[in-house]
Design a protein around this nucleic acid. Sequence first.
DNA 1: CGTATATATGGGAGCGTTCCCATGAAGAGG
DNA 2: CCTCTTCATGGGAACGCTCCCATATATACG
Lengths: 342, 342
Amino acid sequence: MKATIHDIAKIAGVSKSTVSRVISGNGYVSPEAREKVLRATEVLNYRPNALARAMVSRHTRNIGVIIYRQHYPIASHPFYGKILDSILETAAQMDYSIFVSTDQEISSRSADFLLEKRVDGLILISRLNHELIDYFKGSDIPFVMVNGSTDDQDVIHLVNDDLNGGRMAADHFLACGYRSIAVIAGPQDHRSHSLRLRGFRARLAESGIHLADRQICYAATSQFQEGYQFVHTMRKEAQMPEAIFATNDMMAIGAIQAISETGGRIPTDIAVMGFDDIDFAAMSNPSLTTVKSAKSQMGRQAVEMLDQLIQGNTDLPKRAQFSAELIVRSSTHSSSLSNHKE
Amino acid sequence: MKATIHDIAKIAGVSKSTVSRVISGNGYVSPEAREKVLRATEVLNYRPNALARAMVSRHTRNIGVIIYRQHYPIASHPFYGKILDSILETAAQMDYSIFVSTDQEISSRSADFLLEKRVDGLILISRLNHELIDYFKGSDIPFVMVNGSTDDQDVIHLVNDDLNGGRMAADHFLACGYRSIAVIAGPQDHRSHSLRLRGFRARLAESGIHLADRQICYAATSQFQEGYQFVHTMRKEAQMPEAIFATNDMMAIGAIQAISETGGRIPTDIAVMGFDDIDFAAMSNPSLTTVKSAKSQMGRQAVEMLDQLIQGNTDLPKRAQFSAELIVRSSTHSSSLSNHKE
DNA sequence: CGTATATATGGGAGCGTTCCCATGAAGAGG
DNA sequence: CCTCTTCATGGGAACGCTCCCATATATACG
């Protein structure tokens, strides 16, 4: 049987109140009493019961993370897994414990679950449906959203600057002198993918390059297969562009594999660019030029903002946007040696 | 303020005992009373407080997962992330919630944390030090270990059949007719890596091929860089083998990149084989021949066995071993067209 | 009709804490 | 010497549930 403060009290020869003061660290305790209590906790191998504590103190120091995963498991996901890692690390530093919940159909089921467990706050990742968001707004539990798809101004929302990221990708292509360009665009109901495409097209348009519809492949998912298949289809129709931009790295890597399989040289015959800078982008063959999204910063910031919220700080910015960063590797020409200067 | 059973009782016009019976679903309740209670819970948007329940029922339906990560974050890890995914999914199906804890230095700190939170059981992943294992054995909390390094017969331990996996890798190389072989071996204090190497060598030895020390590269970590660097070093010394076996996929993929960079053709000039079958093994360029480790099965089994343990079932096998599976892709010749038959 | 059994309900103790309040002792200031 | 803080300690209520026990009514059986 686990020892309780009563047991400690008895051994140490003090009251349970004194024990409580020593454990929780507030209130007056004489050095001798403290010493006796501490010794008793050693002897009995005492661990305070967080459940009982939470019961009366009304907070658990537990945070729930809900991740929506439609097509892919979550932890091993190169993008969401990174965010999760960062959340885990930051939370540990701040003495929060993390409940990870990843329902395939985000019903209110997993939400209820977490609510019943009395988490102090919630981090919602990726696009959850509006009912669920309303559901949480209705509850009195603080939450922040990461990389979601809501325009709701009442929801604290951390996002990547995908629009600008798309522009940066186009900038790089222009600097390299690519003019014949194709895009593999992920699901357009997904905020990130649609903004990346929008930014990319806008920047090209400014330079007088307008993408025709058949130069854009709208993919149903955002996975490897999409990029892979697109290249093979294009090749059959014998209309290979000079460069391909995919709205995430996975699809770009799929494109790379397809190109290599058919004997194409990258970037000489065709250049490929992705988005996100997942770990594997540096390890692909050739290594992938990409726009880095702020995965770790978003995770860290999510925990920090949630902590503020939990502490009752209400005047937080409703929206935090993280800048993207161009990472040039071997799947495109470096822009200093760009074609159009040759 | 959150509603409690007392509030429900008042609204429904019954006692709190009756409410409790309806909520927890055991004991006699008349249909009318049940109906009234259910309606009241709707009205007040009542959620039972799992803390209070756990307090008296002595179990939380929470499971803690502790992952040791020395060199790499955990969730996004292609191997451990997969196990975690599987744990998450299985746990959700069984109505367990998961606490994920990933301390860099596995002190008893994160352990204490979880113990205080009163998890019903623990899943320990990767090699934890012996003190920590003893620590848990001392506590009365049930736990299972996944892919660890302990020989302790009292510890329930789920492992991959790495020895045989190593043999399978060698088998494939032999069938392909490769005779000049090099190995990139991960940390030898890691059970998996050392067994993979052992099995591989043993099988080769049976066919009269003995690996010299300079044909084996003992890597300090098990990452991309190790494989990458090894190839470049070998190349400088101008002693490229016909085939390279790496004790995990990451290192194999590093080797692939280095070979490609220097203009080597895979598998024509040199074949490469990995171990684990991480997601990116299929997406690498060329796609990677590998031995698949039972990541998902281990995760699922861990939860299921832990559940048994929690329910008090004591006669479980102390050791579960999962078989490996050869996955032939493009980085080696398929053995039916193997060289030695030409 | 009396006794046993199934059905239904309410009250109270208890889970392990924290927090509030009461009570003292000791030292400071007049 | 008396009063007012500061320090120190103990007791009891409360957090929101479940579980046990007591009680009541209905049904069954001889």
